[in-house]
C-alpha cells in the first residue's frame, strides 16, 4: 500500500522507534568557532549504539542572548539506552572534548521541570579539579537554585553545571529517500536534513544527518551483529530475491532521527519527507521497521503527513 505526495510514492509503513534516554547540553565559548569545535568533537563517533557508546549530534546553534553566560553556544543532544549508559558517555565526552577545548563552558539544556531524571555529570566532573574545584551556588533562597563547578584549567577556568536533565526519549525515527540517481537521492536527503533542523528537540546523529549504508539486524557472519540493509541496496537489487528497491531507483539514503519525545520525531519526519519530495527524481519514500517486534514506537509515514 502506498500513497502519493507531490507526485512521489510514499509507502504506507512506519519507522520503528526505540526508547532511549536523552539529554541536551549547551556548550558556550568565546566565539561560535570554538563552541562548534567543542560540540563537533564531543559528538564524534556517536552515530549509532550498534558500535558507539551513545548517539549524539549538534541540535542547533544557540544565540548569545539565549545562553547563560551571554556567549555563543551550541546545543548538543546525547542519547543512551539507560540513564547510566547516557551519563557515562556524557561524562567521558565532556571530559575529553569540552573540558579540554579552550574557552568553553557547559550548561544543562534540559530543565529539571522537563526532565525525568537529573544526572550528576558536573558533580562527577569536578574531580578533574583535583581538589581545587570550587562549588558555585547561585540563587539560594530567592530564585531557582542553581549549582555549578568551577574547575581550574591551564588556560583559565572551566565552568560546568552540576546536574544535567535527562528524559525518556525516542530514537530511530527514520525514512529512506530513493532517487533515480545518487545526486538526486543526496540532494533530496540534504533538503530533508535542512528541514529537520528547523524542528526543536531532535538530532540526526549520522554523518551530515545521513546514513547511506542503512543497517539491518544480524548478518551471515556470526561475529557481526549488524550489516548493511541489503534489501535496500540498488547495486544488488536483481541479485537478491527480497530486494525492496523499486524499478527506477538507483540510490537510497536513510535519514535517522532521535528526539526528546515522540511528537518531535514525528514532526521532524514530516518536515524531512515534505522537503525531500520537492526534489524531482525522487522515486519513492519508505521507512525501516522490524515488523513492530523490537521497538516501542511506531511512527507511521501517513500520520506524519497528516493522513495524505
Amino acid at each position: 500500500m502506498s500513497f502519493i505526495v507531490n507526485g512521489v510514492e510514499i509507502e504506507d509503513t512506519f519507522a520503528e522507534g526505540f526508547s532511549m534516554w536523552g539529554s541536551r547540553i549547551i556548550i558556550t565559548a568565546k566565539n561560535r568557532k570554538w563552541a562548534n569545535i567543542a560540540a563537533t568533537n564531543m559528538t564524534g563517533f556517536a552515530t549509532s549504539v550498534i558500535s558507539c557508546d551513545c548517539e549524539a549530534a549538534i541540535e542547533r546553534d544557540v544565540p548569545p542572548e539565549e545562553t547563560p553566560d551571554g556567549r555563543p553556544g551550541t546545543a548538543v543532544m546525547v542519547f543512551g539506552f539507560s540513564r547510566k549508559r547516557l551519563a557515562e558517555p556524557m561524562l567521558n565526552r565532556i571530559g575529553q572534548c569540552v573540558l579540554t577545548c579552550p574557552t568553553t563552558a557547559i550548561y544543562n539544556g534540559l530543565p529539571e521541570e522537563e526532565a525525568d531524571a537529573m544526572l550528576d555529570v558536573g558533580k562527577s566532573m569536578r574531580f578533574f579539579g583535583d581538589g581545587f574545584q570550587v562549588k558555585m551556588r547561585m540563587n539560594d533562597g530567592w530564585l531557582g537554585r542553581r549549582r555549578y563547578w568551577r574547575i581550574p584549567v591551564m588556560e583559565g577556568e572551566f565552568l560546568v553545571e552540576d546536574k544535567f536533565g535527562a528524559k525518556r526519549a525516542v530514537a530511530g525515527g527514520n525514512f529512506l529517500v530513493m532517487g533515480v540517481t545518487e545526486d538526486i537521492a543526496l540532494e533530496a536527503s540534504e533538503r530533508a536534513i535542512d528541514a529537520i533542523h528547523t524542528v526543536p528537540g531532535v538530532i540526526t546523529p549520522f554523518p551530515g544527518g545521513l546514513c547511506r549504508s542503512g543497517s539491518k539486524l544480524g548478518s551471515r557472519y556470526t561475529f557481526l551483529k549488524a550489516s548493511t540493509n541489503t534489501p535496500f541496496c540498488p547495486a544488488i537489487k536483481h541479485t537478491l530475491t527480497d530486494s525492496q528497491v523499486p524499478e527506477g531507483a538507483n540510490s537510497v539514503i536513510e535519514v535517522v532521527i532521535n528526539g526528546l519525545d515522540f511528537d518531535s520525531v514525528k514532526a521532524a519526519m514530516a518536515a524531512g519527507v515534505k522537503a525531500a519530495v520537492e526534489v524531482e527524481g525522487v522515486r519513492k519514500i519508505t521507512a525501516v521497521n522490524f515488523g513492530g517486534k523490537l521497538g516501542k514506537f511506531q511512527i507511521h509515514l501517513k500520520d506524519c503527513l497528516g493522513g495524505a
Binding site: 558556550t28 547563560p68 553566560d69 551571554g70 556567549r71 563552558a105 558555585m136 547561585m138 540563587n139 530564585l143 555549578y148 568551577r150 583559565g156 577556568e157 565552568l159
Partner: peptide, 17 residues
C-alpha cells in the same frame, strides 16, 4: 588576572533580574 566565565552569569543576573 583573568576573565572568569562564572562572573558573566552573575553580572547578567544583576543586570537582568
Amino acid at each position: 588576572t583573568y576573565r572568569p566565565t562564572f562572573m558573566k552569569l552573575y553580572l547578567r543576573q544583576l543586570r537582568d533580574e
